[in-house]
Amino acid sequence: MNPFPVAKITFKELLKEKSFIGLLTLEVFLLFVSKLISNVVAGDTVKVAMDFALSFFFFTVALYSVFVSVGSTFRDVSDRVVYLILSKPLKRSDYVLGKFLGCAVAVAIFVFFSFFIVTSGILVISGTANLYVPHVVVVERVFLLSLLVFLMGVFLSAFGVLFAILFTSQVLALISAIFLFLAGLELSPVKELVVSSKYVSPVNKLIVQIAYYLFPNFSLFDVKDYVVHLAVKVSPLFFASVFIYSLIYTSAVLLVATYLFDRREL
């Protein structure tokens, strides 16, 4: 097992991509958008600005992870880079794993910069807001959110690599990954609504329950409320479980990806 050379060159390539700087710039821009939106609302403008800024942060990281993993893996195959790599004494699973690790490191760096951008953004917004009751921003909580968002990016990268291998069209792979993400976010609310509804048949309830158990649950990584509302408390157990969950599920996805790639004709 030697995934590290591939990881290294993948990550070097990705950091020089325009999407890295581009999406970070977009994030700065979206901070201004959040500020503008918050000016419209009555009352706690900082709360609203944070809601939007953190949501934008959440989705930018998700988009980045998907674009980077799908794009980079797909291009390797279509541009024949994969021949250069696999002609060397590397297993195909090394390649898949290396690709994933490279994306994960790129996502880590992206989240790291985003964390600074978003934190300084909301600190400035809360510092300049005129409120009777100041809205306190706890940076540690933003940091914890960033950690979870990073885990989510890693999780999504694994799916990105898988889909780039699975599909023969890049657009299809991208769209599937994004839909998977959105569906994974919806799952919790859907289950909540369906299970509590009187009008849903038991069979459908069962189907939704099964989907809820098996489908990747991306809403776990969404702890924006914990950052925005200081009254919300989260136990360390939550973070530990999310970490272990994403670790196990990511490994499973990577296993499937290596299985498919081993059988793939290049």
Partner: peptide, 17 residues
């Protein structure tokens, strides 16, 4: 492959590195 060299047809590598 430890002792092998291979150059594919119309080879390509990332332009950014």
């Amino acid at each position: 492959k430890q002792n092998l060299g291979f150059l594919p047809e119309r080879p390509y590598i990332y332009g950014s590195i």
